[in-house]
Computed example of a mutant assay.
Amino acid sequence: MHPELFKFQLPEFLQGLYSEEIIIYSYGFLISLGALFAFLYTATQAKKQFDVPFHQSADIAILLILAAVVGGKIFFFFEDPIFFIKNPGEILKSFENGFVFFGSLLFCIPTMLIYFKSKKLPILPMLDIMAVTTCIVHGFGRMGCLMAGCCYGLPHDGFASITFHHPASLANPLNTPLHPTQLYSITLISIILIYLLYLKSNKSFQGQVFLTYLILYATGRSFIEIFRGDISRGFIIENYLSHSQFISVLVILSALYFYWNLKRKEIKKG
């Protein structure tokens, strides 16, 4: 696709401070755009439902960006720890790719819990808001993956295939029809988002939207993994259970546990 959105030459008087050419990467641009829309949704809903001031929504956004970057990079490190131990600079060399979504998610969850508790915000209702927020930024992120060629699929000659030609694309191999796993993910996230927007007005207990998001995404992600071609991410059981599938199973089981307990408590109240 188009990993580089555009590039331009800096004026001569700035070239001593920065590189001569500035490249705007599609991945980073779309992630930033998604973060902006996600923040606007969070700030609007938090203000509307719980009168959360704008500056607190901004604080949440900043903390989650930091947690997402740290978590995404740490999990990226564990995909090939021997390589990154020998080449520590590679883990931070580029921010136009090289993140693991589950790492970002699993670091963001405790960050949200700690912040909401410290500010005495209603934890479960706020998590329900954040479920939609996560879908928004994640959807834009997968569009970035499509443009950059990362998270690519296995070779596939069928009707639903995509071929990457750009030399800067991360897809491997280039010039070969592949499963459009990025589009599979975008479709999955879009369907989940639509359902969550319906569910938030019809939920039977607080926290249901967030837990439903975790269950649906982890389930869908475990199936999409079957068609992923970037096998360098590694396996727990070679060729049968990838790291992401293993994490998906843990997320599903944990979410189901809390879902059942919260629902049972609500039934007892009624």
Results as ranks from 00 to 15, higher is better:
31 I>G: 02
34 G>F: 00
16 G>I: 10
19 S>R: 02
18 Y>K: 11
15 Q>H: 09
32 S>L: 12
54 F>Y: 03
21 E>Y: 11
28 G>N: 08
53 P>D: 04
55 H>N: 05
44 T>N: 07
39 F>I: 15
15 Q>N: 15
18 Y>S: 08
57 S>Y: 09
14 L>G: 08
41 Y>I: 10
45 Q>V: 14
46 A>R: 06
48 K>E: 03
27 Y>E: 02
17 L>P: 06
20 E>W: 04
23 I>S: 09
56 Q>D: 14
40 L>C: 10
32 S>D: 11
19 S>N: 03
57 S>I: 03
57 S>W: 11
52 V>W: 02
48 K>L: 12
55 H>I: 14
17 L>W: 11
41 Y>A: 05
34 G>C: 01
56 Q>M: 13
33 L>T: 03
25 Y>H: 10
15 Q>A: 12
18 Y>Q: 10
34 G>Y: 04
47 K>V: 00
16 G>H: 05
46 A>M: 05
38 A>T: 10
22 I>G: 12
41 Y>P: 14
35 A>H: 00
31 I>W: 01
13 F>Q: 01
18 Y>A: 04
38 A>E: 02
39 F>H: 14
48 K>C: 03
45 Q>R: 01
54 F>T: 14
19 S>D: 03
52 V>L: 03
57 S>R: 05
24 I>P: 11
14 L>Q: 04
37 F>Q: 00
44 T>L: 13
14 L>N: 08
47 K>N: 06
55 H>P: 01
52 V>E: 01
21 E>D: 14
27 Y>Q: 02
29 F>E: 13
17 L>I: 14
39 F>G: 11
38 A>R: 06
42 T>E: 13
23 I>R: 15
25 Y>L: 12
37 F>N: 09
52 V>P: 12
23 I>W: 15
27 Y>G: 10
37 F>C: 02
19 S>Y: 00
40 L>M: 11
16 G>M: 12
33 L>W: 14
27 Y>K: 09
50 F>Y: 09
34 G>M: 13
45 Q>H: 07
43 A>V: 12
17 L>A: 10
54 F>I: 14
23 I>K: 15
43 A>I: 07
31 I>A: 00
53 P>S: 00
23 I>E: 15
30 L>N: 08
41 Y>N: 06
19 S>P: 07
33 L>Y: 08
18 Y>G: 05
40 L>E: 09
46 A>C: 00
38 A>K: 05
24 I>A: 13
22 I>V: 13
24 I>S: 11
30 L>R: 09
39 F>T: 03
55 H>D: 10
31 I>V: 05
40 L>W: 01
23 I>D: 12
57 S>E: 08
14 L>A: 10
41 Y>V: 13
51 D>E: 02
53 P>A: 00
45 Q>S: 04
25 Y>D: 07
57 S>D: 12
13 F>R: 08
22 I>T: 06
53 P>R: 00
51 D>K: 08
37 F>Y: 01
47 K>H: 03
55 H>F: 05
47 K>S: 05
44 T>D: 14
47 K>M: 07
39 F>Q: 11
36 L>T: 15
55 H>K: 01
30 L>P: 01
50 F>E: 05
30 L>D: 07
52 V>A: 15
16 G>N: 12
13 F>C: 05
54 F>E: 15
25 Y>I: 07
41 Y>R: 02
20 E>R: 01
46 A>N: 00
55 H>L: 06
30 L>K: 07
57 S>Q: 03
21 E>N: 12
35 A>P: 09
17 L>D: 05
45 Q>L: 11
44 T>R: 10
41 Y>S: 07
50 F>S: 04
23 I>C: 14
